[in-house]
Design a binder for these strands. Structure first.
Length: 843
RNA sequence: GCGGACGUGGCGGAACGGUAGACGCAGCGGACUUAAAAUCCGCUUGGGCAUCCCAGUGCGGGUUCGAAUCCCGCCGUCCGCACCA
């Protein structure tokens, strides 16, 4: 063996061998147990970033490990290739989105290959290709036939200067990001998927997703937001009826005003005759639209002059237009109970409206004043007529019953979840396969005419959707009547693309989206790994899409991902100086900076730069490192090892230059250990045998739990034990074992050493070798070290045979000189003995 | 504002309610070398500067023979958000 391991040669060598032998192709016909390991596929932005490397390394270790455990592993890769950045590039650099995207894919694929991932590239897919989005169109038509797709009016952000629809993120302070023009709300007829039909199913299904993090399930549960409440109508002073929804009907006697959303018909009606009301509504629309902005914004209202009659007391409650009421939830109108809802409390305080107590800790506290905030907890009803003395739950039931009985309201289950709007007024997406005919209306494209292919000859110089002003593409004959008609020019939300790609990975026939028999074999995905930012939307949409396909009999699986793991971000410290001219920070990249002990200097001028906080790597802060450069310097195994070391995978991983250097050193250290392998060595080293098998068993457990940092620590320990050992058959066995343990993590050096050891007669690869067997008997220690405490404080430790009875342990503990000194003659009151663990003497 | 999580050495972190700080990084000392790199050995929570003891897991309480771990109340940091009526 050479003295040093040379990754620049070995990496590409083994990557080529794996390719040639098609080591990682999944066999659909295999009768082995199956493992579908999947990481969220990347958007082809152009370069792999460190976060991808972390994500794919974790999946790769699991995939390679499962293969060693005798599983048939499906570990595919593809490209989430539709989306806005390609169109932005087209506008900025005059390149075609398709060309730009495909070039990025080629670059990133080469980068992934250099990292040595065990991927089945034969199943590679890109969502921007007709062989992917064509089948998607066909599935969309299936859902349409099943009445799960419909059209309705919905508002979009319209940039009047760029003549284009903007995404929320393109609206900055109410203005278009490019034009700077004030954004208008425009109503368009758009396509929706009936995800709300599945609200209960999706909620219910969360209970069975045992392999999902609790926090993600909670987030989805809150997102779906099932609530039980009362929908009832107020009679207004103009004679009309105003339906409201409340989850706290028990507090109805505490209602002191009624509020409607700015977009509510009542508000619109008032605005028609009141310029002040109109101005107020405009003001509400101008403000921020996110929850955080709205919740922290000052509560504002406009008194409409109308009143609403309280259904029980007959009191006349003022009706306000309020900026904190949402048109999208419930009926867009509320009964406001300031005493028991914080938002209502703030509003009532501002506008001097009554704040009444209707829930109290006890009847005696019926008139206790409020301590500056609403009380939303449990209690008994007070000041509430026939409800007095009831608990909150009973009172809700009583009010609901009365409303039902008297015919002015009824109990209702409400969901926060809204239907999924999938229309995008953009070019670079899946064309929605419909045709608009003046005579026949909206007509689906017949399946034998799919795919509806995006035209390549498009013009980005003209503002707006290129599909709209393409000279010929839109114009088709109606499939029904044959007269001239027009294609739908909206494309599908890219979340549709990612809602079924895992199905296409499992099966990709030419003539249909997938073969259900293959889906049944591979799905659900055994382990899905990706960023927490997808906790709600992507994961909920994928769950919905799968369930929708199951409902219409296309697949036999309801939940696509059996286990989910959400990884942390990769972070790095920042380097900055303050620009003396404008006081703004100027950031420097790690490559421009030299780290010196506590501080850092800019290489260019040798002057110091401030070492800033450790934050998520981002281009704007320049605290990024390029995986390619790391691979070129240290090799793929070192960067993979770094991704797995130290930080638990669900937490953030701080990147550091010294950390990757340490990983590079460990690669060489391993190489020296491998070099000590001697197949002919003899002699037994029992403690090393035990350490070896304990490590093998523990690392297996750690990998299955995705606790890679712990597995890494154990491998370090075994490495140290091997280095301290004398040559023996045991040492050679331990070296072989550690090679197999690191093989899923550092496959290149593992292959190189496997070959160099030369006792794999058939010339097999370590990538095809089985995981080492463990002698269960060796795992059991025969000696244990026991803690001896006096009054809970450690005073001594004693090493004894494992399984020693309690009375003997107690005697040994009391015999300890240190213990006797600590007891100092005090009477012993109690002795707690935990066999094989500790003795605690209470004196 | 609401929801979710997390607080352990200089840093990343280990630790079924049972020896806190495994393992890695950084640092210090030493060996090897003409020298450097590489490598190897040792030390590394704080304090009293004793093989001994005291304190110590964000802060304050509590449960327990025993708490980083369980409970209550604070403080701080991070993440998500579509006002959930």
């Amino acid at each position: 063996m050479n003295e040093r391991f040379d990754p620049s040669r070995a990496d590409s060598h083994w990557q080529r061998i794996w390719d040639e032998r098609q080591c990682f192709r999944a066999d659909d016909a295999s009768d082995k147990p199956r493992s579908f390991v999947l990481e969220m596929f990347p958007y082809p932005s152009g370069r792999i970033h460190i976060g991808h490397v972390r994500n794919y390394t974790m999946g790769d270790v699991l995939a390679r490990y499962k293969r060693m455990r005798g599983h048939e592993v499906l570990h595919p890769m593809g490209w989430d290739a539709f989306g806005m950045p390609a169109e932005n590039a087209a506008m900025e650099k005059s390149v075609h989105p398709g060309g730009w995207t495909r070039e990025n894919i080629a670059n990133m694929k080469a980068q992934l290959k250099r990292l040595g991932f065990a991927l089945d590239w034969s199943r590679e897919l890109a969502t921007c290709e007709p062989d992917y989005y064509g089948p998607e169109q066909s599935l969309f038509l299936d859902l349409y036939e099943a009445d799960l797709v419909y059209r309705k009016e919905s508002a979009v952000n319209w940039d009047p200067v760029d003549q284009t629809v903007l995404a929320n993120e393109q609206v900055i302070d109410g203005r278009g990001w490019r034009s700077g023009a004030l954004v208008e709300k425009r109503k368009l007829s758009q396509w929706f998927l009936k995800i709300t039909d599945f609200a209960d199913e999706l909620l219910e299904g969360l209970d069975h997703l045992k392999g999902w993090p609790e926090k993600v399930r909670t987030m989805q549960e809150n997102w779906i937001g099932k609530s039980q409440g009362l929908e009832f109508a107020f009679t207004l002073s103009d004679g009309s009826s105003l339906p409201v929804y409340s989850t706290r009907p028990d507090t109805i006697f505490g209602a002191s005003f009624v509020a409607v959303a700015a977009d509510h018909p009542v508000a619109q009606g008032i605005a028609a005759t009141s310029p002040e009301a109109l101005a107020f509504i405009e003001q509400c629309r101008a403000g921020g639209t996110t929850a955080a902005e709205l919740e922290t914004a000052e509560k504002l209202g406009f008194d409409t002059g109308l009143t609403a009659t309280h259904p029980f007391s007959g009191a006349l409650l003022p009706v306000y237009i309020a900026n904190f009421v949402l048109m999208d939830y419930g009926t867009g109108a509320i009964m406001a109970v300031p005493g028991h809802d914080q938002r209502d409390f703030e509003f009532a305080t501002k506008y001097g409206l009554p704040i009444m107590r209707v829930v109290a800790a006890s009847a005696e506290e019926a008139n206790k004043p409020f301590a500056g905030e609403a009380e939303t907890g449990e209690g008994v009803l007070v000041n509430s007529d026939f409800l007095d003395g009831l608990g909150v739950a009973e009172a809700k039931a009583a009010v609901n019953a009365r409303a039902q009985q008297e015919g002015w309201g009824s109990a209702k289950t409400q969901y926060r979840l809204r239907d999924w709007g999938v229309s995008r007024q953009r070019y670079w997406g899946t064309p929605i396969p419909f045709i608009h005919c003046e005579a026949c209306g909206v007509v689906p494209v017949p399946k034998d005419q799919l795919p509806v292919v995006l035209p390549e000859d498009v013009d980005f110089a003209t503002p707006g959707n290129p599909l709209l002003h393409h000279p010929t593409w839109r114009h088709v004959d109606c499939p029904k009547c044959g007269k001239a008609a027009e294609r739908e020019t909206d494309t599908l939300d890219t979340f549709v693309n990612s809602s079924w790609y895992f199905l296409r990975f499992a099966s990709q026939p030419d003539d249909r989206p997938f073969d259900p028999a293959q889906i049944a074999k591979w799905l659900p995905v055994e382990q899905y790994i990706g960023g927490i930012e997808h906790a709600i939307l992507h994961l909920l949409y994928a769950r919905f899409w799968t369930r929708a396909l199951a409902r219409i009999g296309k697949v036999d699986v309801k939940e696509p991902f059996a286990s989910l793991f959400t990884q942390g971000m990769v972070t790095h410290e920042t380097y900055e100086r303050t620009n003396p001219e404008n006081g703004q920070p100027v950031y420097y990249s790690p490559a421009e900076v030299e780290r010196t002990g506590d501080g850092a200097t800019l290489t260019e001028d040798g002057q110091t730069v401030t070492v800033g906080r450790v934050i998520k790597m981002s281009k704007s802060k320049k605290n990024v490192v390029d995986p390619d450069e790391i691979v070129a310097t240290y090799g793929a195994d070192a960067i993979r090892w770094f991704m797995l070391s130290d930080s638990p995978p669900e937490r953030d991983l701080p990147w550091s230059e010294s950390g990757i250097e340490g990983c590079g050193r460990f690669v060489q250290r391993l190489w020296r250990i491998f070099g000590q392998y001697d197949a002919s060595a003899s002699g037994e080293d029992k403690p090393l045998d035990r350490k070896r098998d304990q490590t093998v068993a523990a690392v297996a457990e750690d990998i299955e739990a995705l606790s890679f940092n712990k597995a890494v620590a154990r491998i370090y320990e075994l490495a140290s034990a091997i280095e301290k050992a004398q040559p023996s058959a045991s040492r050679s066995a331990a070296i072989k074992a550690i090679l197999l343990l690191v093989a899923p993590m550092m496959p290149h050096i593992a292959e190189e050493a496997w070959q160099a050891m030369g006792d794999n007669e058939d010339g097999g690869l370590v990538s095809e070798a089985p995981w080492p067997e463990v002698d269960e008997a060796l795992l059991v220690e025969d000696e244990v070290t026991i803690a001896v405490q006096v009054k809970g404080k450690l005073r001594d430790t004693i090493t004894v045979a494992k399984g020693l009875p309690a009375d003997e342990l107690e005697a040994l503990a009391l015999a300890s000189e240190k213990v006797q000194r600590s007891i100092d003659g005090a009477p012993i009151r109690k002795v707690i003995v935990v066999p094989d663990r500790l003795v605690n003497i209470v004196a």
